[in-house]
Design a protein around this nucleic acid. Structure first.
Lengths: 340, 340
DNA sequence: ATTGGCAGTCTGAGTAGGCGAGTGCTAAAG
DNA sequence: CTTTAGCACTCGCCTACTCAGACTGCCAAT
């Protein structure tokens, strides 16, 4: 059984270790905090915590550091949600204030989050799947190449390049565009994909092949999900915190350059009722990120679609501050992309 | 005066140092290369090279390493343009084979270049400034927010979000869109910007303000230059080559996360008649990149616009291999985006 | 349950010494 | 004038060693 005071000891061990990066001993605890008991008592508590595998000693006679399990208890039960400083609030407002297009907003968001937390920041693109087709544009770039552009009513814009074997008349293209827009405009994505698949049969044999090329591209665009894309900033921070990793940080950097890995990680995180989730140390081992922690929060867009953003850093990170920052930025981004 | 053989000595010093990361001494030179002379002779040559500041000794009695000036001579006069291995050729073809949209092509290119060189790879977006307006789309996202999309005949797609204070009728929007497309379609960018600026005066007083908001956004889009954007890959490679930097690589990583810095650097490089340029060590000092070298090559798109791509890495990098890779990828990308 | 005291353990910094690679110089040879 | 062999000398690096300091675990007393 872990007593009330033992948990308090765990808290100060986590806090002091995060602040100093040095194993914390019983003496320094009674010095820096007013527990009203002696070092020997603290030592007894620490023995208990070690029993529970919440802390560990790197060497026989040295202070203790929190284990992953210890961080978990800290995050779940002990971390005080430190409110943002006014400087941080100002940073959020000024940084995200003037919104332009989605790319720009997300790019600013990720840089902001990285600055606030001094960690690697990640923002996933919103999925925007519940949208309807607004406009389709066909652009001829050269004699053998064209481009299709799809615009939805949620503001998503998708483009594709196509190589076309046979020469295409401008007239034909114009006709096809008109046809596409009149028959697909306003449709949901699933319906649109169906109609597109049926389209080539309506054309004469010699143009059907080309139309097929175009419809295939459009179907891809219709079904493409931008939430398989994310932006990242602050990779340099991993280098700054290099000492927090046992080996080289090279494999860590490699892992986070692989977007697929991060998207899977995002997908497997189990958010609480507020959409917030924390994954600590070895919990990420299968992604090659066993020495890092990931904090994420969901955010939502006007069309009600959910996506995620968060930060990644060494297991020994400032959870209190970073959790508050991730939460605040997610809230602010939701507001910015939201209805009102 | 630097003799023929001395330059040959410089070449092998650069090559051996690149291969081993260790100062190379006179003995190891005669051992590994067949100069037909004794170590003492090599030492005399090395004294000459040191006189010319092409090589330097880190410590009084140790081998020599090339100076920045030495690398410069190597790159300009001595580097053999090693042809790509067949594996590398295959990699280029398979990686860039299936082209989809521009974002995807550039993203693949940068990852490919990073893999071929084991360095940080950079690809600047093409500027595409000589294009004409193809289509303008206005999309209402919510009661107080809309989006403008601009498509040019070169396949550039720009989008902007706008907050609108007054409610907008669908009818009005439809009308405005028709008007915009009929009056601007086919125009060059400069003319289009002029016409747009004049547009609000044609509307009644109460709608002019809203139209103004929209035209301002469109003018921004028309004049926006995507070549102020670039993609990067392989930052992890900098960590792998950490030993090549005297201090921490943190400031280097910070510098390359700042896109503006890299774009200025790209802009200041002086390409030769093939569009190829190399900037070595201290030549980049003003960008905080005094211990890195940058190799870039221009590439061109179908509309004849030029842009740049390249790699960045420690001054002690494999110039022969990397120069060949940058050249090859630039050529291939030009072909892919080019006319035929 | 808490405390003071004490012996034991381990780290990390600091020091000394020896090894080896490599140089510069000189004098002789081609 | 260039090349070569020989030699004394210089340093960086590695290993071994010591020593002070920090902390623990345990025990007996409160």
């Amino acid at each position: 059984m872990v007593s009330e005071r033992s948990l308090e000891v765990l808290r100060v061990i986590v806090q002091d270790y995060i602040a100093s990066r040095e194993p914390v001993g019983s003496k320094s605890i009674v010095d820096r905090h007013s527990f009203g008991v002696s070092a020997a008592t603290i030592r007894n508590d620490m023995a208990l915590l070690e029993e529970e595998e919440l802390i560990a000693a790197p060497h026989t006679s040295s202070g203790r550091i929190p284990t992953d399990k210890g961080y978990r208890v800290f995050v779940d039960q002990l971390a005080d949600l430190r409110p943002l400083t006014s400087a941080q609030r100002t940073a959020i407002e000024t940084f995200l204030g003037a919104s332009t297009d989605l790319d720009e907003v997300l790019s600013r968001t990720v840089r902001l989050l990285s600055q606030l937390t001094h960690q690697v920041a990640l923002v996933q693109y919103p999925s925007l799947s519940r949208s309807r087709i607004r406009h389709i544009e066909l652009v001829r770039l050269s004699s053998s190449r064209m481009m299709t552009v799809l615009i939805t009513d949620t503001g998503r814009v998708e483009q594709r390049l196509i190589d076309i074997p046979t020469e295409l008349g401008d007239l034909f293209l114009e006709e096809l565009r008109t046809k596409l827009n009149s028959s697909l405009g306003g449709l949901g994505l699933a319906e649109a994909a169906e109609k597109l698949a049926a389209l080539p049969t309506q054309f004469s044999r010699d143009s059907a092949a080309t139309v097929e090329l175009i419809t295939v591209a459009l179907i891809e665009q219709v079904l493409a999900n931008r939430s398989d894309k994310l932006v990242m900033a602050g990779a340099a921070n991993l280098v700054r915190t290099e000492e927090d990793f046992s080996g080289s940080i090279y494999p860590v950097l490699e892992a986070i350059e692989e977007q697929v890995t991060l998207l899977r990680l995002f997908g497997e995180m189990a958010p609480d009722q507020n959409g917030f989730a924390v994954s600590i140390g070895q919990e990420n081992a299968s992604f090659g990120l066993g020495e890092t922690s990931v904090l994420t929060s969901g955010y939502s867009t006007s069309s009600g679609e959910l996506s995620r953003l968060g930060v990644l850093g060494p297991t020994r990170m400032d959870y209190s501050n970073n959790m508050a920052a991730v939460r605040a930025v997610a809230r602010y981004l939701s507001r910015l992309l939201g209805e009102n």
